[in-house]
Amino acid sequence: MTETSTDKPAPPAAPERQAEPVVEAAVLHEVPGRVTELGGVTVGNTKCENPFMVAEDVNVYYGDNHAIQNVSLEIGKKEVIALIGPSGCGKSTFLRCLNRMNDTIETARVTGNITLDGKDIYRKEQDPVALRARVGMVFQKPNPFPKSIYDNVAYGPRIHGLAADRAELDNIVHTSLERAGLINEVKDRLDEPGTSLSGGQQQRLCIARTIAVNPEVILMDEPCSALDPIATARIEDLMDELCEDYAIVIVTHSMQQAARVSRRVAYFHLGLLVEVDETDRIFTNPQHKLTEDYITGRIG
């Protein structure tokens, strides 16, 4: 049904992108707002040069509610891709498919294909637990464990057996905090509870906690929505640094944030992936009426 599913084996190629979307966009400009008509067609380019996670034809149902329809998207190595869209558009749902957090919701059902490094993450032998160690997640509200700062960061390495001894664990905790830009603020109080930190610090602690497990992909679900602008800026800087090592998928409500941190942007609308493209392109020249409406503020 989607354009990507038909030519999946083919390597990501540019020509298509130039030919088709323009036509699509033109048609759509004539019938603005008729969302149902674009079922399953994503304009722009869902592919990328160096795909690491590939979602194909993903559908998610919560009971009878069809939350996500036929979404296909590639996520490249070491890139930041932002998922934007109005509330309830399914971007968070899609994000949670990528590390199978939806498994914890009983009524949720996922169909389609999602691969990580070429392997289907929904295959039977895949342990979702092992998957989540490779695809880490940072949540909307900072949620440190009610334990010490040290234990917050050390928890992941401990359950995955990443450190052979205490010194190594200390080292992991230290570097993780350092990479999360938190070390200077907390190095003297690692024993204090993580909940004693400010909101922005807590969120950086959560990032440190996530990178301590040494994941390959980091999913961020509106990581700054509960933070003030200064804390937000720090986290955005941090993402810039982190994308040198990790693929980052960020869900955000803020187009400015998407524009600042991401290389590519995917626009979701009512469970559909409407448009995917390079950030500059999507903000300067959106090819879909809905995308344009959204980034110009006509859709809240």
């Binding site: 637990v129 989540r132 928890y155 992941g156 359950i159 996530t210």
Partner: peptide, 27 residues
């Protein structure tokens, strides 16, 4: 026990059982 704590642990790759015994139960 707030669900956010369960999510945090799950997101780090803790199994359901580990989430329960490491986080939910102590709280």
């Amino acid at each position: 026990v707030p669900p956010s704590i369960r999510e945090a642990a799950l997101g780090l790759g803790a199994s359901q059982t580990q989430v329960v015994f490491h986080h939910v139960l102590p709280l």
